[in-house]
Design a binder for these strands. Structure first.
Lengths: 195, 195
DNA sequence: CGAAATAGGTAGGTCAGTCTACCTAGTCCT
DNA sequence: AGGACTAGGTAGACTGACCTACCTATTTCG
């Protein structure tokens, strides 16, 4: 009897996974409660037992997506303590994350797409901003190791690489594939080598 | 009697302008027909006399936003025939475009935000992709003038600058201001000078 | 038992799009 | 010149679909 249907927390996981897939693929506003519960194979009330509202589910989606990326980054990063490799690990983490979404096609950064749908004051937007700030600060930390005597240069290149990466993700999302991400990784590699 | 209320095309212009403001500030799905007609000061039926559907209005919004950008670029570009200035004109056009939206706060690239809300097969997404391709090809054209003997180098730097610009716009939209755009312009200027 | 799940329905609201009925300013035709 | 016609506008009701959120009643399982 491997299928337990009513283990506690199981419905929550299924809901969050289904919602993540649908929010990413179709957008937040275009995804209704019934679609989520149906895909999760869960009763509608189970959603409201585990999340106070759809907005809370959206918020959990944003946090989960950030955590996913961070886990992928740490796997990539811990393989080496070369700071150049650390910078590249940031790019690889996004490439890895993109490939997990390949089933329904790459749509760019789920967090950025979510932010585009949220109103100006929504706390979700702040969470997305926090994610982007953390990525940039990871880049800067590695660059400070590469240029230990030039903190402002490190900060400048950190911003440069953050914009490069962000743009590649956005463009890749338009195209529906991760080619741009690989191109950006190559550009970043060159940039670090030549300087 | 200076106010003609029923001049042909007048309602269409007012609708497109109102819809553009609202789509950009609040998103497409979050903006209803009634909100648009109310802001335009126009009857609902006038919308359906001028546009077959909301989707057509969205499509017109995307085209209009691209045309706006192109007009701003041409003003910036025609001031000089220095190819480096031509590259910078692309950045300046986005800075100019951002300042037109300052009334309600900068929200990044309206076309990219729209694409995030459109489903995979929507023709609007193709229009956005066309806009991005045109921007990159303008960059590459200037770079081909800068490096006339190195077309592949020009193409590579063109992609680099396109990603840089795209990322800066996206990040600026999260922050709600155009600071990132100015930073990216400075980075691009450096990049062209040092090489 | 009791916590957590299930199926399914309901309330209240919003949205896109249609419809009716009326108004106004030009244009055409005799 | 003047009446009829037309194009494009206004106001507002209305339909059918869908959405979030809540509710009821029942069942599963540790």
């Amino acid at each position: 009897m491997p299928e337990r249907q009513s283990a506690p927390g199981r419905a929550r996981d299924r809901l969050l996974r289904a919602a993540s897939d649908l929010f990413y693929a179709d957008g937040i506003a275009a995804t209704g409660i019934d679609t989520i519960t149906e895909r999760a194979g869960v009763a509608k009330q189970s959603l409201y037992n585990n999340f106070p509202s759809k907005a809370a589910l959206v918020s959990a989606y944003i946090d989960a997506r950030h955590d996913e990326w961070l886990a992928l980054y740490e796997v990539r990063q811990q393989a080496s303590d070369d700071p150049v490799a650390g910078v590249i690990a940031v790019f690889d983490a996004y490439i890895d994350h993109a490939s997990t979404a390949y089933e329904y096609g790459f749509r760019g950064c789920g967090l950025l797409n979510a932010a585009a749908e949220l109103s100006a004051g929504d706390p979700g937007r702040a969470a997305v901003r926090r994610h982007k700030a953390q990525v940039e600060s990871l880049l800067c930390a590695h660059l400070n190791d590469i240029y230990p005597e030039q903190p402002e240069r490190a900060a400048r290149i950190g911003k440069h690489l953050a914009f490069l990466l962000e743009g590649a993700i956005a463009r890749g999302g338009l195209d529906g594939n991760a080619n741009c991400l690989h191109a950006a990784k190559a550009i970043a590699t060159d940039l670090l080598e030549q300087s």
